[in-house]
Design a protein around this nucleic acid. Sequence first.
DNA 1: CGACATGTTGAGATGGATCAACACTTGTGG
DNA 2: CCACAAGTGTTGATCCATCTCAACATGTCG
Lengths: 253, 253
Amino acid sequence: MVITPPSSAGPCPKHCRDCRLRSLDAFNAVTPQELGFIHDFRSGVGLAAAGTSIISEQNPNGKLFTLYAGWAFRYKTLSDGRRQILNFLLPGDFIGLQQEFADGASHGVEALTDAALCVFPRDGLWDLFRQFPSLGYDVTWLSARGEGMVDENLLTNGRRTAAERVAMLLIHLYRRVERLGLATDNTIEFPINQQHIADALGLSLVHTNKTLRRLAQLGLHELRDGRLRLLNPRALHRLADYYDLPLRRVPLL
Amino acid sequence: MVITPPSSAGPCPKHCRDCRLRSLDAFNAVTPQELGFIHDFRSGVGLAAAGTSIISEQNPNGKLFTLYAGWAFRYKTLSDGRRQILNFLLPGDFIGLQQEFADGASHGVEALTDAALCVFPRDGLWDLFRQFPSLGYDVTWLSARGEGMVDENLLTNGRRTAAERVAMLLIHLYRRVERLGLATDNTIEFPINQQHIADALGLSLVHTNKTLRRLAQLGLHELRDGRLRLLNPRALHRLADYYDLPLRRVPLL
DNA sequence: CGACATGTTGAGATGGATCAACACTTGTGG
DNA sequence: CCACAAGTGTTGATCCATCTCAACATGTCG
């Protein structure tokens, strides 16, 4: 990944006060003091080209990131190459916290699209907790929320059938993107291929393809040109045993 | 669950300074000030009988706990009853953080054995961050560690075969218990039944039984009278593609 | 033009699910 | 004391959801 100092050009604004994400309804407001600290905490901004690694599974870089634009995913692999995608990352998601603490083997993070990132130094995290406990609280919030996301994926992988898994993935990602204000006409950008879906759902590529086709033929969704359109959200909800929850604003670092 | 004030009798000592867990090598040291705060933060101690609910999946109680003695597990269920165990909880594990923050549907927590718990009020958490940022940092650590644990389980459920899953579960739980100093002669207390194993691994009960037997017949382990003995840890490691990691001390609240 | 990534489809194989018994233990009430 | 129900573990037979293998289509890009 190319890391450039905050002063140089890039999709992340030079100053956090100009952050495009903060104006969204999806994120908590911060005080000017907090905003100032976050800006100072940021050590740079980065760009990761689609398909490149943001955090290597073997050599974690110890940095922290906020995904500013684009999609990414977290994953783990077995030594013979079998890969499991742990969850997908969307703008606003905080990246890299687990590698700081986890005592299990780490995970990798890879960009799905060209992605813009805010970079934070790992050593600065303690300062953040000390100087702005409210931000520390936010970090914990984000961490717990991340765990909740993986919990859901574990339920999906362990106990849902292939069709239920696919339905779950489609709705869940749709809802997350929608919350960022990026859904139009029941349609979102959907920059993942069938191999990614298979690896996220613990299915084979072939079976993923067949299941996807079946749901499409039933008129539940349409997947074309990197865009996903939900044609029958109700049926997808029912199939996935998915329940919409009241939206809450989440912290943003 | 019965909640009694800290002054009454019970397996948790009246004062946190007498906490049995803190003397273990597995946990970080705390300053006297931190210890005092933790003690004041604690609103009571509790006992949960084996098989009873600590946090209900439907009606989360909003409390926070540290498991002091015994085993428990976190789980989620689908509306038709299919259950997925998310992870097992051992002494020292912090419980209930996700329900505070997660915007996904919540999870339940159930005691596997009679369990002793320290109870903390959810409203006190913010105070903790403000007054003792170091403890806030610890909470984040625990949260991130918890996520790492679920990550591993997700990899297991999504990409390991039945035999690999069983091997993984046996070793992983063994190592965790061992770290608490509770392993003797390659043997640990193992108070979970085959249904729990099946629900943790995303397998059917019958297939779990057959797989367990196969591994036992191969001489990899012995499971009797609620105790697990590893007879061939090397083979289990190889089968599960499991790597021991350097032990780190973890925070304890 | 060929190389490569991606998606599609069919045929056949199989790991794990489901169904159905039965054994053993424990606790309970009569 | 026995009879019985409930929880747990075991095993065999059969089924089927998903995997693997194989082939081919399409689009992109050098």
